[in-house]
Design a protein around this nucleic acid. Sequence first.
DNA 1: ACCCTCCTGCAACCAGGTCGCAACTAGTCG
DNA 2: CGACTAGTTGCGACCTGGTTGCAGGAGGGT
Lengths: 144, 144
Amino acid sequence: MGAGGERVDELLALVRERGGRITTCRRALLSALVDAQGHMTADALAERVHASHPDIHRSTIYRSLNDLDALDVVEHVHLGHGPAVYHLADDLHRHLVCETCGAVVEVPDDLFRGLARAVADGYGFRLQPGHFALLGTCAACSPD
Amino acid sequence: MGAGGERVDELLALVRERGGRITTCRRALLSALVDAQGHMTADALAERVHASHPDIHRSTIYRSLNDLDALDVVEHVHLGHGPAVYHLADDLHRHLVCETCGAVVEVPDDLFRGLARAVADGYGFRLQPGHFALLGTCAACSPD
DNA sequence: ACCCTCCTGCAACCAGGTCGCAACTAGTCG
DNA sequence: CGACTAGTTGCGACCTGGTTGCAGGAGGGT
């Protein structure tokens, strides 16, 4: 709810356009994602959705997220060992995750250009670096 | 078993050196990894170990692998959504995984130099690209 | 041979997610 | 407007991959 309502309607229109139906659960999920302005775990989304729609089942959340993912309206990323996080599909960026403190650093896609070209040339492999984060140690946790 | 016996003994010596004990389970695990000459899931290792030591428990496999990991004798990598795979710690390479067919492409570490430098310079982030694979589409599964 | 510590077997547990099925409902068509 | 029908949902059981607490057992230093 709130000011992002039009944004949500746009996204729902996209859902319709691509053959999906507009349902309470999907509206609530997209609304939560627009509100959050970033990535959220399925669990966090479930909690948020439950606040206004307590009778939406856990499995429905997962299924709806999968559906929205299949419709290219949202995307999920694995940040490490824990649960996946979801964000709107048009929010294009890559993730670095600190293995020590869990901090997430968002970086532009084009940092990966060189690497992508190298593996394409050398191995015929098309890199899709968005689906899994890259792990490492953030500035704050670096020993020196 | 077989010709890799000395290799296994070297690795076990490493375990001792670093304060770990030499046990049936650890010997069997290292032996299986040396035999396999590559990466194996905990499950596959368990199966292999069970063949000669049927009374070694599942949880012991996991614990031993964690221990060997902590002793820097083996390492684990997450190739995607499924189980992690283990390999000997001195077998240094990175992994590209095809999201379509699941093929694993091993690439040398130095392909990542450029990217590592870029995120280090730009974000103070030390990339450790070994722990998670990079996803994409392999040559065989590419549309054209 | 002794003893202390590390390791193991066991079984219960956990997180994160999936599935089969019957009931429901969004959107289409008359 | 009402009926139809395929896409969705609620429910609960289930699954994979892995962890944990505890009591008993084995490694290896002395």
